[in-house]
Design a protein around this nucleic acid. Structure first.
Lengths: 334, 334
DNA sequence: ATGAAAGCGCTAACAC
DNA sequence: GTGTTAGCGCTTTCAT
């Protein structure tokens, strides 16, 4: 193994000089820098992460806590993971994966063993035991999603209330007078994952404000669940002409069940999907969406984490404004 | 921060004794162990990962290299990530994420900085520049998937040739005389990701062996691509009655396009899907599958890695036997 | 602008 | 069965 001492010897300088060339924390003569950099390259030197962490108390690693459940949209989770990892590298950090099923203990383990400098936590629930743990840990931390009530932790998320509102407004503007929401699975509501409630609130309030009749139903991830959900919605109002689907996993089933019912999209029913844009364009019919900007959210989470690591201390909650992209699945009500 | 010295003092023993209690590397009297364990708990001690890594040259971290591309099945990738992470924890290891786009340099960085003890690499291509790098690195490494030709690296994967064979055999046994393969996207074939070729070979050879006519086509991830793919297949043989879909992303589109063509499943066309079981059961029609056992593959990859870390040195390639589960999407040919 | 040296917290000989 | 101690490779004062 090549150490900093090998490099120092080869360059004819002291180890500390090599360290300073690497960190840029003090000025180095051009000639020395050249020598050192050349030796580093020639020897193929890489600073030892453990030694560095021990000496500096910084690992340059961010822990990312991901949900394992399948009642969430797996591809969406994967997009977050990719976005966070990519952005972390951009800031010279690595990402350590922690699974949600480790619970608060997992966070404690990571913080206690100083294996990561900060934590990014996904899929936070309303009374999530990890929130008090994060507070107690007193490490830089950012939540992707927001817990039920303010906690003093930094959060990033799509403004789901505004997203729900945008979806309904789009339909209302097109003359729809009765709309249905195909929501996330019941389990998501039950454990109080707030994005579901926030979205439904935006949906409901905006529909009320526009005098639009509205029904909201959770929906499991199977075809049968989607079928049952639509059955309920159309039973509640056979005249329903607008559908908002906040459950990307059943987009396919919803669209085919509509077909079975003899409802054409968008002639008979307009459909707005809430999902990443990448998932809206590969359907038989390109879907009007309120997009979930996973890249932006992931990148922002990392930026906020890095800023906390740099000393910024006041927690902030950033809710990104939704963007609705009209495509072929919505049209004016007849 | 609580250090091993604090624990030692509290327990009235030396630091090394605490270390040995933790590692179990020498015998400790019951009483001493009790004292130490109690102090550890009382003080909330966690060994510092950096210090440990520095002193022992072991990080207890596995690097997992994941593809970011979307021409692979994202949910499948996510399942691997989850399986690897879960199994790693079972062996007291953590997982560090590295993205494929870092290329060979990423592997070098991870190995060079000793930030992980071993590497697990997904989505290996036929002339993958990461293979020679892995060989040069001389660290424990396991590939999920197999490169074009033997490399001296350990590999785990589904036996895709056998999977292709099983799918065709199932159809042939039901009396189908002409079958089509909806394959992964062209890009997957182009970069020589071998699972696609191995599957197609199993498909082709088995069809030949059974005297079954066969056509294979790659298929992009959009609805249009699926439509075009089926158009080509049915143009090649309008009498086609068996379809093998090795592209989970277009399962929905394929099924709806079949409907548009007036082909009922399974009355007119039988469909076998290659995908994780979790993805086969949520369709309008439960699908006959050859399942991709992501959990097993991921867990096995970790086990093989851990075994290498324990000193096992001979590389091995493990191809898991496919399992076909008949469901409602296949039936006897009329 | 550079060097010397004291740790960072732990493991693993080496003692007894 | 337990204690002592020399590093592991780096960062960062403190000197000059």
């Amino acid at each position: 193994m090549v150490t900093i001492i090998d490099v120092a010897r080869a360059a004819g300088v002291s180890p500390s000089t090599v360290s300073y060339v690497l960190s840029g924390k003090r000025s180095i003569s051009a000639e020395t820098r050249r020598q050192v950099e050349q030796s580093i390259r020639r020897l193929g030197y890489h600073p030892n992460a453990g030694a560095r962490a021990l000496a500096s108390s910084k690992t340059n690693v961010l822990a990312l806590v991901i949900p394992l459940r399948t009642d969430l949209n797996v591809p969406v989770v994967m997009e977050f993971v990719a976005a966070v990892t990519t952005e972390a590298r951009r800031h010279d950090h690595d990402v350590l994966l922690v699974t949600k099923d480790e619970g608060p203990g997992g966070l404690k383990r990571v913080a206690g063993s100083a294996i990561a400098d900060a934590l990014i936590v996904m899929d936070v629930e309303s009374a999530d035991p990890r929130v008090p743990m994060l507070l107690a840990l007193d490490r830089p931390a950012v939540l992707i999603g927001v817990p039920g009530h303010a906690t003093g932790l930094s959060c990033v998320d799509l403004d789901f209330a505004a997203a729900g509102a945008a979806a309904v407004r789009h339909l209302a503007d097109q003359g729809h007078r009765s709309v249905g929401l195909v929501g996330p699975s019941p389990a998501v509501y039950e454990r109080g994952t707030s994005f579901a409630d926030r979205f439904r609130r935006g949906f409901t309030e905006t529909a009320d404000a526009h005098g639009v009749r509205h029904w909201a139903r959770p929906c499991g991830h199977s075809y049968e669940a989607a079928q049952a959900c639509l059955a309920e919605l159309f039973e509640a109002d056979p005249g329903l002409t607008g559908l908002v689907v906040q459950n990307e996993a059943v987009l396919g089933p919803v669209l085919s069940d509509l077909r079975h019912r003899g409802k054409r999209v968008p002639e008979d029913v307009s459909v707005v999907a809430i999902c990443p844009d990448s998932m809206a364009e590969n359907h038989a019919l390109p879907l009007t969406t309120v997009s979930i900007p996973t890249d932006e959210i992931g990148a922002l989470a990392v930026e906020m984490t890095i800023r906390q690591l740099a000393g910024e201390t006041t927690p902030e909650t950033r809710l990104l404004s939704p963007r609705l992209t009209p495509r072929a699945s919505t049209a004016a009500a007849r």
